[in-house]
Simulated assay, not measured.
Amino acid sequence: MFGRRSKRGGKARFRQWLWPVGGIRRSGQYMIHRLARTKASPYSLAAGFACGAAVSFTPLVGLHFVAAGLLALCMRASVIASAVGTIVGNPWTFPFIWLVTYEAGRWLGFGGGVEGERIDFVSRFQRACDALWNLDLGGVAHAAGPILEPMMVGGSLIGVAVWLAFFLLLFPVIGAYKRTREVRLQSGRARRSAALSAGAKG
């Protein structure tokens, strides 16, 4: 009933994922509102979204949904909200995330094997994927190892800060949204009840 009359093709779906109609900010606000309207507690939703956002700062590309869900389960948070939170990692933010996490790991003393090298993350990940496809574990380690180590360390530490930032931001917002919505619903129920009582007396 609520489906699209004309199905979108693969290119249209990719464009929607890359740049949602109405803009990324509007799509993000829509998803937050949809989450806030669920029965989950403000803690569960805020912590779940924060898990997804935090995991997006790790180099576990392709495993973010799984890692975010497992982290959410450990924290008794919403798995669905954690999946939504992974939108923080997207084609527009990944270059920045990879660079910052890599530099943070290097600053902490990890990944010294690529000293002075200008890192081409896309090329290295492509070589790692090709090696993995050919079951060449040595090739995977050679291509990805020098950058995965500093990115994992830097991303994990930054992820803690990202989790706290999103949780502290969303927890009061979602709580206030739920309280306001509950007041509106109660007011609506009271008006309908009063209208029914008036009709019955009439």
Rank of each mutant, 00 (worst) to 15 (best):
L148E: 01
W17G: 05
S82V: 04
T58N: 01
E182H: 12
G3W: 11
F65G: 07
T38E: 07
N134I: 00
A198I: 00
A54D: 03
R124N: 02
L135D: 07
A131F: 00
N90M: 05
K11N: 14
L71C: 08
R181I: 03
M151E: 06
C74R: 13
A128D: 03
V84S: 09
P20D: 10
Y30W: 12
S123Y: 09
F167G: 01
Q126N: 08
W19E: 08
A40C: 06
F125T: 00
W107D: 00
S187D: 14
L99C: 04
E182N: 13
F125W: 12
R181E: 14
C74W: 08
W107Q: 07
R13C: 11
V140T: 12
T38W: 09
I158K: 00
A47E: 00
R127Q: 14
T101C: 14
G10C: 11
S56C: 13
I97H: 06
L148R: 02
L18I: 02
M1Q: 08
F65S: 08
S156Q: 05
R179Y: 04
V66C: 05
E149R: 06
G154A: 10
R179P: 00
G188Y: 11
V84L: 08
G154L: 07
L170E: 03
K201L: 14
M1H: 06
C129G: 14
G23H: 06
L170F: 14
L196W: 12
C51Q: 09
S156F: 11
I97G: 04
A128L: 04
I147E: 06
V100R: 03
K178R: 14
G159K: 09
R37T: 03
G188S: 12
G116Y: 10
I24F: 15
F2V: 04
S82C: 05
W17I: 09
F2L: 13
W92T: 01
G52S: 12
R26I: 04
A131W: 00
R192E: 14
R179W: 08
K39W: 09
R25D: 09
R8T: 11
G48V: 00
S156K: 00
G138D: 14
F96R: 02
I174S: 02
G159E: 06
A50I: 02
E149V: 06
L70P: 01
A83C: 11
Y43H: 11
V114F: 09
V114L: 12
W133G: 14
L196Q: 13
G109F: 05
G89W: 10
A50V: 05
W17L: 13
W107V: 03
A104G: 00
P91R: 02
H33Q: 13
A131H: 01
S56M: 04
A161M: 06
I158Y: 01
L63R: 00
A53T: 10
Y102R: 01
L157C: 03
V162W: 09
F65E: 01
L45Y: 03
I147C: 07
E182D: 13
G28V: 07
A165W: 03
R124H: 03
F65I: 05
A144H: 02
G199N: 04
Y102F: 15
S197K: 13
